[in-house]
Each structure stands twice: as C-alpha cells, then as structure tokens.
Design a protein around this nucleic acid. Sequence first.
DNA 1: GCAAGTTGCAACATCGGTGTTGCATGTTCT
DNA 2: AGAACATGCAACACCGATGTTGCAACTTGC
Lengths: 195, 195
Amino acid sequence: MALPASAKPLRADAERTVRAILEAAERVLSTNPAAPMEQIAEAAGVARTTVHRRFASRESLIAALAAWATQRFHDAVEAARPDTAPPAVALYQVTANVLHVKIGWGFAMGALPTDAPEVARVHAAVLAQCERLFTRLRDAGLLRPDTDLDWARRVYYALIHEAAAEAPDTDAAVDTLATRVVDTLLHGIGTSATP
Amino acid sequence: MALPASAKPLRADAERTVRAILEAAERVLSTNPAAPMEQIAEAAGVARTTVHRRFASRESLIAALAAWATQRFHDAVEAARPDTAPPAVALYQVTANVLHVKIGWGFAMGALPTDAPEVARVHAAVLAQCERLFTRLRDAGLLRPDTDLDWARRVYYALIHEAAAEAPDTDAAVDTLATRVVDTLLHGIGTSATP
DNA sequence: GCAAGTTGCAACATCGGTGTTGCATGTTCT
DNA sequence: AGAACATGCAACACCGATGTTGCAACTTGC
C-alpha cells in the first residue's frame, strides 16, 4: 500500500531523504515512541510536509520503519548460515551479526507492533531458524538434553537485547559483546557446573 | 503534588475506585501505552470524569501508577531480607517475590518513564540492594570472582522480565519460574562448566 | 436520618497532532 | 538546457484526546 520501496524508482535525491527520515524516526521514537511527526522531520532535517509526501500517514511510516529493520534483521541472521555452519560457530556469528544491526535499529526491531503480515512472516521465519539452530546445538551436546527450547530462545533474545543497549558499534565492541552473550547464555554467571 | 495516597483519608468507596482505576490502567496501558483515558475509565467501570476527579491529569495518573508499582516492588525486595539472609536463599526469595509483583504490574514496573524523584529514588535503592546481594554471592563463591556485577544485574533483571511474561500467578507457578530464573542466571542453558 | 462525600451524565472549551493543498524555489537526470 | 521531480513554506480543515463545570442521584459514615 504505502511501501516506498520497489514501487517506483525514486530519484537519488529522494532516496537519501527517505533514509534520513527512517534513521531520524529510529532515533526520535526510541526515546519517545509517541513523538509527533514534527520532531521526526526536524531530526531528519526536512519539513514536516516532506515526511507526509514520502509516508502517507504516521502509520505507514511506522510500518516502513519496521519493514526496513526487519529486513536487516533477516539478512543478519541469514549471513551467518545458521543451518549449515557448525552450530557453535553459527551461534556466535548470528549473535554478532544481529547485535550489529540491533545497535542502531533497536527500537524498530524490538518495541514495535508488528501488524504488517510481511514483518510478522519474517519474524516467524527467524524464530524457526533460531529453533533449528538450538536443536542442532542440543544434538551436538552443547545444550542439556532436557532444555526448554522456547525458554532458551527467549533468554537468548533477552541477552542480545541487553547487550545491544551498550551503544558502541565498533567491530571489536560487537565481538566483545557477542562473546559475553554466548558465554552467559551457555554458562550463566555462576561458578559451578550444572548440578 | 497529585499523590492521592496520604493526602486526605479517602472514603472506602473512593478508595476502591482508585484501586480499580490503577488496575485498569495497568491492564490497558500494558497492551497500548497510548490508550486514551476513556479506555482506562471503561476498563475500570467508571465514567471518564471520575478518573479526572481522582487524577487531575493523565500525567498524574501515570505518576501514581508508577509510584504504586514501585512501592510494591520495594516491599517485595525488602521482604526477602537480602542483606541478612544467606545470599543463595536471598537470591531465590527476592526472585520469587519480585516475580509475584511483576506478574500483574509488569507495565508499571518496566515500561514507564520514572520522572518522579520518589520513584527514581526507590529504583536506585533497589539497584544498590541488588549490587550488595551480588557482591555477597560473589564473596560466597557462587559467582566467578571476575564477574561484571553490572552485567550480572542486567541479565538478572532481563531474566525476571522474561519469566514474568508467563502470566500465571499461582504460588506454585511463581516458584517454578523463580527456580528457572535462578538456575539460568547461575548456570546458563549449556551443559559444561565454565572453561 | 442527615450531612458530607462520590459518581454519572451531558455539555463545553481547548489544544495539539494529522493530513492536505498550492505555489515558488531548487535539484536531478538526460 | 529543459522536463520532470523534490522540497520548503504557509495556510487550512479536521479530529480525537484532554480537562472543566454544573447538576441530579446515590452511598457512606456517624
């Protein structure tokens, strides 16, 4: 309906504007989800009417933001080849890749109602991917045989969410965070092994 | 300013209304933080004007909701005697108590801007309490000596948040969840001990 | 039972955000 | 250079949420 991408080949000029608006929306809405269009426009360095020209309604802007972030999310997971790489490697790689995206698009990825079927579909796909990866990890003996995979997945998501809150987006920083996330996920923060 | 408690001894009648409104606000706002006062009033079974009579503005309703939940939060932590009980026991007890409160007041406790100094103060106090408990756990040899206490605390909060998402508020269910949270916090979901 | 307090209802004023239009001034692309 | 496109600006209509008031009917507490 109001999808700006793949509808008409936008002029280079306008394309930059769209990007600026999406990035501004991420920044502004992450600190105040109810912020008016005016603030987003201002943060993007454009007039309010321009925002409305690119996104018919506030709703469609939100939808586009969600779609954009979701696509990046999906790409980040796929790039780690979670179905074919050795499970331990895949876990680390997925973690690092997703962290990289989530730093900078955290709001759009997390605190956004995914009404759009497009977005929900991708999220479901990634969820299934995650489920498969965890199964492979369990079969490889890295997770306890009786692991509740749903709980495991939710803990994993939560740890990534927490780690992403520490802003820096350097490659080194991302690797440090990913290491910490994977280590905490597998071993917790305690000293002893599982009883 | 707009604190309905301890200002004037409200009539039993009105007290019930205030409670109903706060509970309704929790329910409604948790599914839609931007929901209009009308919906909250409807959910509470009162007229919109009544809500305005008890809470001068939307802002003050939010503030009262945050204050109410924060108080319960604080009480839940204190009831576990985290400074005097054996650290392992305290950890479990705090977890169970907080889970009990967080199920049912999750929105007010988590997704609420804590502008009020009252609320911020209590949150800071609980945070310090948590820090002390984790130090005691570390000194008791239950956490690795090199543990990043800030990361540990954030993981702990995140796990509680996740666990609280599973609605049931039975004593048995809370104990099951608390066990899972503590176990995951200390040992993660992997098989082997820390390398 | 009576006074004080509480609620629902209807009506009103107000405000801020949303979305639209027209036009003049740039910018892009070929 | 010229056509097509993009943007800023100003003005407007509109809507829904907020907050207020007055009054009649009811409940609570003593």
